[in-house]
Amino acid sequence: MGMKDSIKKVLVKLGENNKPTYAVMAIAVVKGIARPLFTMSDKHADPETKKYTAIREGLTEVVAIPTYFACGELAGKVANKLNLSPEKKALARSNFMFLGVCAAALVVIPALASITIKPFMNKIQNGNKSKEKINEISNISEQSKFNSVKKEPNFKAKKTMTSYYSNPIQAQTAILKVGGL
C-alpha cells in the first residue's frame, strides 16, 4: 500500500467520524510548543519574566491536552449508556463529545489551571526569590569585608521584590492569567 493510499484511508476515516477532540488537542499541542518559544524569543522582555511566562504557558497546555481528551471521551461514554436507537446513539455520542470539549474549554481547564499552575508557579517564584536572597546576603557580606561604611544596606533586597516585573500590575497579571498572552 502506497503513501497516497494510507493518506486516503486516514482522510476517509476522518470524513466518517471527525471527533471534536482531534482539533482542540492538536491546537493545544502546537500552542504548548509555539507559545513558550515565542515568549523566549522576545528580545525586549526581562530574562526572568520570559522564563516564568514560558513555563506558565507550557504548563497551561500540558493541563489542557489530557483535560480535552478526558472530557470528550468521558462525555462520549455517557452517551453510550443512554437507551437510544443505534442511529440516535451515534448522534448523541458525537454531540456529547462536543459538549464535553466545550465544558473543558469553558470551565474545567481554567479551573484546573487555577488550582494546579498557580501554586506551582508560586513555588518556583519563591524558590527563585530565596536563591536570590541567599546570593544577596553573600554579596552583602563580601562587600562588607571591603567597605566599612554602606549607605543603604537594604538597597538590593528592595530591588529583588520587583526584579521580575517592571510594574506591579504586570506582576500580578502574570500570576493570575489563565492562558493569555
Binding site: N18, K88, N95, L106
Partner: peptide, 29 residues
C-alpha cells in the same frame, strides 16, 4: 437537543466547533 442532527453536524465540523470553543474561552477565562 442531545440527539440533534444539527448539533452533530456542528460537532463534526472542525471550523464551527473550534469557533464555538474559542468564543466560549473568550467568556470563560
Amino acid at each position: 437537543f442531545l440527539t440533534s442532527s444539527t448539533l452533530s453536524s456542528i460537532s463534526q465540523n472542525t471550523a464551527a466547533s473550534v469557533s464555538i470553543e474559542t468564543g466560549l474561552k473568550s467568556i470563560g477565562r
